[in-house]
């Protein structure tokens, strides 16, 4: 305990142990996940993201939406996420395998968005919400995503269109081998 290299080696051992035990073994289990059909012969899920949605994720990240919105629904025994109607089933690891950056988030000042695309009714509704917010909500209006034309109507910028495409692409309304939707 008096030698610098011994202490460093010991601390390295503690770090390497947790790295191996948590991350390498996690990699063995999660690193090979593929898309899977909900039932034999069916289409593969999660579905490939539309290109516009991939751009929209960059807007989502760049505006810092992850500070207030999570993208994970916990199982029924842990928290009231499903009871709140955010999704019909808990999110599972397979749902995320196509995402370049996983934004499961850790803080909720607003609703969970993992299944938002299945909840929102139309693009127009979403655009109006983004542009004006609603009274009493902590979420501000994102008016800078829209430009006003001469006749007073609002046109979404490219960012807004991409963001809406991304939000609409967020869906876990399919069964996965790990979590079936209840019929």
């Amino acid at each position: 305990m008096k030698n610098l290299n011994l202490i460093l080696a010991g601390v390295f051992f503690t770090l390497a142990a947790s790295f191996g035990g948590l991350l390498l073994s996690g990699q063995v289990q999660l690193g090979q996940l593929n898309r899977a059909p909900a039932e034999e012969g069916g289409p593969l899920f999660p579905a490939k993201e539309p290109g516009l949605a991939i751009q929209g994720r960059q807007v989502y990240i760049s505006l810092g939406c992850v500070a207030c919105h999570t993208q994970q629904v916990r199982p029924a025994g842990q928290g009231n996420d499903i009871a709140r109607g955010w999704a019909a089933r808990p999110s599972v690891a397979r749902d995320y395998i196509l995402q370049s950056q996983v934004l499961i988030g850790s803080h909720r000042l607003g609703p969970d968005l993992v299944n938002y695309g299945a909840r929102v009714k139309s693009d127009d509704e979403l655009h109006t919400y983004l542009r004006t917010s609603v009274a009493g909500s902590v979420m501000p209006a994102y008016g800078f995503l829209y430009t006003q034309s001469k006749d007073g109507s609002f046109r979404p910028t490219e960012d807004a269109v991409a963001l809406v495409a991304y939000l609409k692409s967020l869906k876990i309304d399919y069964s996965s081998p790990e979590a079936k939707l209840k019929q």
Binding site: L8, A16, F19, G20, L23, L24, Q27, V28, G31, Q32
Partner: peptide
């Protein structure tokens, strides 16, 4: 230390 850990990760990742 970094090289050992990074090598371990990249070796495991190459299974992909």
């Amino acid at each position: 230390a970094i090289a050992v850990i990074a090598y371990a990760y990249l070796a495991f990742r190459s299974h992909d």
